[in-house]
């Protein structure tokens, strides 16, 4: 894996996450579950920011950033807060794994940024309801 492919992997994960969280926000009621709605709003904003950063870095390298897909397969059951949280957890975990990989494939500012993104996603995982784990982003450990 190269720096570019690690960046593209992270960007691909962010495209999917931004899409998913927008969809989840559309079915989560601020009146019924204000905490979950606030979490979705905050995480959607955070992932959009990451997507913009990754796009900018790739363009700076003279590479065409991977485009978002025209559609993403959403989970079939999003009828409960538990299901929404599980979906958010899965997406956040996928991003954390790509950022861990990016740390290993980058240097300098991009690596520093990826370290921070990994840590932020790890904390967000607990906000989605996942238990703390020793090695977030590294399932092989």
């Amino acid at each position: 894996m190269s720096t570019t492919s690690a960046l593209q992997d992270s960007l691909g994960a962010e495209h999917a996450t931004v899409h998913l969280f927008a969809a989840l926000g559309g079915i989560t009621s601020v009146a019924d579950d204000p905490v979950l709605h606030a979490l979705l709003t905050a995480r959607h904003r955070a992932h959009r920011g990451r997507r913009e950063y990754l796009t900018s870095v790739l363009r700076g390298l003279g590479v065409d950033p991977v485009a978002a897909q025209s559609a993403y397969l959403l989970p079939t059951d999003l009828s409960t807060a538990t299901a929404v949280r599980a979906s958010g957890t899965e997406s956040e975990r996928r991003c954390a794994q790509t950022y861990a990989a990016l740390v290993g494939q980058s240097t300098d500012d991009v690596r520093t940024w990826a370290i921070a993104a990994l840590t932020e996603s790890a904390v967000a995982l607990t906000q989605w309801g996942a238990p703390a784990e020793p090695f977030p982003g590294a399932p092989e450990l």
């Binding site: 990994l118 904390v123 703390a132």
Partner: peptide, 28 residues
């Protein structure tokens, strides 16, 4: 080493995650 960088970053994230739970900034 990139692999070691990844490992250290994962360890940092793991401790930060536990601190978030410990101090109540995780788990909403």
């Amino acid at each position: 080493s990139g692999a070691l960088a990844r490992l250290f970053a994962v360890l940092a994230a793991g401790v930060e995650q536990h601190l978030a739970v410990l101090t109540g900034t995780g788990e909403s």
